[in-house]
């Protein structure tokens, strides 16, 4: 399981967010460059339709299968991520973060060929380019700030162009279990408060917009950072 909140930030304020995150976690910054391939089962027969129908009948939420290739490391690391449906019910709706089932597995570099062979095909692909910070508090929290890029041709990583050049995606996630998610959600929510001068974080799917006063907060953060650098 994982708990997650998301938001967007104008690209011009990303530097200030970087400064803010660095101040919060004492510089555990990592580059993020991930090729993400979303897979779906091949609809050659009525198999996919029957699965969709079954999903409607049972009320389960359709899951997603993503294949991630971490391009920031050599050799590249492949991971398959099964994203299950979000937790449902009145209690879950009132939570400030989305809680969903996640299962991940690192794989050898023939992972894409493997999934093609076992009945999957590429739905879409994208490149996430940016940075991440990992915080070790009561629960490990990861913040990723990325520009989401489309690939004009299949697997053309080098030709990736941002989908929204002026906007970047901010995602805050923390691993959880069925036993501790009720503690992890408040932790992630309270952490999100630290970032609120620059980014509104909410559950994926419930868009909270950009922070109207982000320019002032960003200017203040950057000038404070400059003053600190001069003092050092």
């Amino acid at each position: 399981m994982e708990c997650v909140v998301q938001g967007i930030i104008e690209a011009q304020h990303v530097e200030a967010l970087d400064v803010l995150l660095q101040g919060l976690c004492e510089g555990q910054r990592e580059a993020v460059k991930t090729h993400e391939i979303c897979l779906k089962s091949k609809p050659i027969s009525s198999f996919a339709d029957s699965r969709a129908l079954e999903s409607l009948e049972t009320g389960t939420v359709a899951s997603e299968l993503h294949l991630l290739c971490d391009l920031s490391k050599r050799p590249h690391i492949w991971t398959v991520k099964h994203i299950g449906g979000a937790m449902r019910g009145t209690g879950a709706e009132q939570l400030p973060a989305l809680v969903r089932n996640i299962v991940e597995s690192k794989m050898s570099n023939n992972a894409l060929r493997f999934f093609y062979a076992v009945g999957y095909k590429m739905d879409y692909e994208l490149l996430r380019d940016g940075f991440a910070y990992r915080f070790q508090r009561a629960f490990p929290i990861t913040v990723t700030v990325t520009s989401v890029c489309r690939l004009p041709k299949q697997h053309s990583i080098d030709e990736a162009t941002p989908v929204t050049p002026n906007i970047q995606l901010v995602e805050v996630t923390a691993p959880a279990t069925a036993d501790n998610f009720s503690d992890v959600v408040p932790a992630i929510s309270s952490f999100a408060e630290h970032l609120s001068p620059l980014v509104n974080l909410s559950k994926p799917g419930s868009f909270a917009g950009i922070v109207s006063t982000a320019s002032t907060a960003a200017a203040s953060l950057l000038s404070r950072s400059d003053r600190l650098e001069h003092r050092v």
Binding site: S41, L65, K106, N110, A111, R113, G119
Partner: peptide
Amino acid sequence: LRAERMVVEADSSIQAIMEKLQV
């Protein structure tokens, strides 16, 4: 996959993923 001449290495959690996929 013998017909495809392929050997794949994965974390043991891949079994849980394959179970969820129900293929």
